[in-house]
Design a protein around this nucleic acid. Structure first.
Lengths: 207, 207
DNA sequence: CCATGCAGTTAACAACTGTTCTCCGGAATT
DNA sequence: AATTCCGGAGAACAGTTGTTAACTGCATGG
């Protein structure tokens, strides 16, 4: 199926990757709305005009980054929530998984947290859309649980959003936590917050 | 006590206000890291160099905006959480209060949501600090409740952070909700999320 | 009333921005 | 083997940016 694409398109995707990576690196210390086209091309080492061969604007590049940063997250979400029991060890594992993801893709996490409410409308929209998809997936997984008997679709979705938002908050806290003790504090708090939510879930007046 | 300050300082504070207001207006469609000094002065109608009489940089102006946007929120928080019972009508009133605040100061709310994870470090720090103060205040109010018997300081603080973050999320959702039906949906969801958290709070294994 | 202080102005600086047009070299197609 | 296609380079454009210096006019305190 995957035909070894020619030298031509291979090179194109190579510089495209370089542009995305350079942008992601530059965005650690600024927001997308201040990211210059020339700034990115300079970091890569190509002419400013080469940028247009790949993206219409920096906002367009931003949308591509959203797909990249959140698209790869779906499987993780699914495996985290699925299985459906909300035991303590499960919660501990979920927080660990978030921490691990932040370690693996810190720039992606920072980008999403920053641009979710950022100054570039199309990017905000793209993030909102992807997070809504996440919430919907989480909802579907929650529905499989026997604990969800009697829950309305609406209630499941509101719980799913609560989980997704909580996940993002925790990820952002991990990002700011530099030393080990601070990380431990974040882990501790996030774990108990999830535990409290699960407790509320168990006692939710359903049916 | 408040001596009617001279014509001199009155004019100064007047243009300072104008600069802050203009910046806040401009920040509805971009983030602070892309806000230009000249852009602000042009909107006000003063020379670019006049900016330096009031702020060292746009980052400095941003910090001032944080104080303004969050400083006025403390009384609201206090009256919302105090009283300590977490009845349903109390939750409903809290969500209403948030909605009202968003209506009254939409630009402030947008600014905080945007710059909390934004690209300007001093501003992020200022917001983090103020939100930590909020959480601490909420914690103190929660501690007064008879429901908090047996709760550790740590647990109270983690619940307080949960409330504060939830408040911000809700405020941000109100901001994006333009029409009445969408506002109703946000109100409905936020109310039930708070209710679920309160439920978890009631069943928290304390002592 | 006179001298000082200071908010705001004017002018100029080098550096930077996004965008257009023209061109080049080499892979892809025929 | 000849031709088309196309990613990237190069140069130039008008417009923008932050920051500096020296200035002006007027409210202020002696």
């Amino acid at each position: 199926m995957s035909h070894t694409l020619g030298v031509r398109q291979a090179q194109k995707q190579k510089t495209r990757r370089a542009l995305l990576d350079a942008a992601l690196a530059l965005l650690e210390e600024q927001s997308l709305s201040s990211l210059g086209l020339r700034e990115v091309t300079r970091a890569v080492g190509v002419a400013p005009t080469a940028f247009y061969r790949h993206f219409r604007s920096t906002a367009d590049l931003g949308v591509a980054l959203v797909e990249e940063a959140l698209g790869s997250l779906h499987p993780m979400i699914r495996t985290t929530v699925s299985g459906a029991d909300d035991s303590d060890e499960r919660i501990v594992r979920a927080v660990e998984l978030i921490g691990r993801h932040v370690d693996a893709y810190p720039a992606h996490v920072r980008f999403i947290a920053r641009e979710r409410h950022g100054g570039v409308q199309p990017v905000r929209e793209a993030i909102r859309e992807q997070l809504a998809r996440f919430a919907s997936e989480v909802k579907d997984e929650l529905a499989k649980d026997r604990q969800a008997a009697g829950w309305s679709e609406d209630d499941l979705l509101m719980l799913a959003h609560l989980y997704v938002d909580q996940m993002l908050i925790t990820a952002s806290l991990f990002l700011e936590a530099l030393d080990a003790p601070e990380r431990a504090r974040v882990t501790h708090m996030a774990t108990r917050q999830l535990r409290l939510i699960s407790l509320g879930r168990r006692h939710w007046p359903a049916g």
